[in-house]
Amino acid sequence: MAISKKRLALAFAALAGAAQGAAAQTAEHVAAVKSVMDKSLVRAGTCAPVSEDFDGWPAALVQRCDYPQGVAYVLDVKPETMAKWIETGCAAHMSGVAACFDRMVKCAAEKSSATFVIGGNLAAERKGAVTNLFFRNGVVIGAAQNGKTDAVPAAEQEKLARLPESGVEAMPGGGPVAFWHTMPHQFAVKAIDLGVPAEMNTPDRRQRWLEIIRAEMQAALKTDGNRFLSGWMTAHPITLRTGECADDRDP
């Protein structure tokens, strides 16, 4: 049966409208991610690309940020990339939950200020005060200055920021990784082949976990999904569907 010109015109108009709607929604998602990234104290300072590779991280992926509370070398994740990770995660784990995207953005802000610190101080307001918290490859590391409001000398901050993976002596909390505070065992479910350490109680295990994170994050930057987010969402289906950002033991 022949299709009238009018019907063809209506069909093309509908397709065009759908495409525009999808593009507008994506733009809103990107803007939402950019908004929370911009609110990080780290990014409120001066950030610039580094000139040399940073302990296994290509220079093109790393920015050094100097801000009033300290210094941090951060992974340069574009808002478009994080938005795509969240869109993919929501489609896979919370299909039909309209608020999923906004919840995951909110949780990234709450858990890590939507910032992946490769090395350095992620100062943030916690319990009404701005406190220091030192990271390596998105994981909090043991440092005497953690949780304190006192200013840390610039030279000491730089030393901690450049601490090699092999030099990390402790991972408080068992090594959860940004952006969503994913525990090693939660990620291991998505990457059985990688041999993720069950505990971070030896130098070799801590170094292995940091190496896995480094490789995995670099791979995620080239794909639509992020297995750290996927593992975290899989571990907390009930809590996330209530609209709350899950803590480690929440269902």
Rank of each mutant, 00 (worst) to 15 (best):
M1H: 10
K6N: 09
R7L: 14
L8G: 09
L8M: 13
A13P: 07
G17M: 10
G17D: 12
A18L: 15
G21K: 15
G21Y: 13
A23D: 10
Q25N: 11
H29Y: 14
S35T: 00
S35C: 01
V36E: 09
K39A: 14
K39Q: 08
S40T: 02
V42W: 01
G45P: 00
A48Y: 02
E52I: 03
D53Q: 07
D53I: 03
D53E: 07
F54N: 04
G56M: 06
A59M: 07
Q63Y: 13
R64E: 05
C65D: 02
D66T: 05
P68Y: 10
V71A: 03
V71Q: 02
Y73F: 03
V74K: 00
V77H: 15
P79H: 12
I86W: 06
E87R: 05
G89K: 09
G89I: 08
C90L: 09
A91F: 05
A92L: 13
H93L: 06
G96L: 06
C100M: 09
R103L: 15
R103G: 06
M104S: 08
V105H: 06
V105I: 15
K106A: 15
C107W: 02
A108D: 10
A108G: 15
A108S: 15
A108F: 07
V117G: 08
G120F: 02
R126M: 11
K127C: 06
G128Q: 00
L133H: 07
G138V: 03
V140Y: 03
A143V: 04
G147Q: 03
K148S: 13
V152Y: 04
A154V: 06
A154N: 05
A154T: 00
K159L: 09
K159F: 00
P164V: 03
E165G: 13
G167V: 01
G167W: 01
G173L: 05
A178W: 06
A178S: 11
W180I: 08
H185S: 10
D193E: 15
P197E: 13
A198M: 14
A198F: 14
N201Y: 13
T202M: 08
R205T: 14
R205G: 07
Q207A: 13
W209K: 03
L210T: 10
I212M: 09
R214D: 14
M217N: 09
Q218L: 05
A219G: 12
A219K: 01
A220M: 13
R227C: 05
F228Q: 07
W232T: 11
M233G: 10
M233N: 06
P237C: 12
P237N: 12
P237R: 04
R241G: 09
G243M: 03
D247I: 00
D248T: 08
R249T: 06
